[in-house]
């Protein structure tokens, strides 16, 4: 059936089955391919988007459950936390293969919006849902701390 969803500030109408995960609507119907598929079962975090500003694994939410919520993908990131995190990611050369990094960046920004100066433990708890098979975790941690310093000004 036709679903009307708000993604990155625009309302889109998509004609897909109710059980279609939001992830595939974003990627296949809307062409927003920055959000990645990694497991399909909310184990890896590569598909992380925001729903009303909160992190969401888009592989595990059917489009029919989106309702009036506002979805934000990595393509529409804005704001000082996003700038600080992405700049820190580049400065630390965090990515290796890079495939999981959209999700990592989304989770890191969400963390810094809630906790201005996260501890290592805060980082563990927020980022443990984002797998990186290249295991770039050392740099993810360093970049988050660095971004926090930037935000401190």
């Amino acid at each position: 059936m036709v679903h009307s969803i708000n993604v990155n500030g625009t309302t889109h109408r998509v004609d897909v089955d109710d059980d279609t995960p939001l992830l595939w609507v974003l990627r296949d119907n809307l062409g927003l391919t920055g959000t990645k598929f990694g497991c399909g079962v909310a184990q890896c975090g590569a598909c992380t988007v925001y729903m009303d500003g909160q992190p969401l694994r888009s592989c595990s939410l059917p489009v029919s459950a989106v309702g009036d919520a506002r979805i934000t993908t990595i393509e529409a990131l804005a704001g000082k936390e996003a700038e600080a995190v992405q700049a820190a990611w580049v400065k630390h050369d965090v990515p290796q293969c890079g495939y999981c990094q959209s999700g990592q960046v989304m989770s890191a920004i969400a963390l810094l919006k809630e906790i201005r100066k996260p501890t290592d433990r805060d980082i563990d708890l927020a980022m443990t849902g984002n797998l990186c098979r290249c295991t770039t975790y050392v740099r993810i941690r360093a970049a988050i701390h660095d971004a926090a310093r930037t935000l401190e000004g």
Partner: peptide, 8 residues
């Protein structure tokens, strides 16, 4: 390749 991979 860091920038492209940090911005999706």
């Amino acid at each position: 390749d860091s920038l492209g991979k940090s911005t999706g």
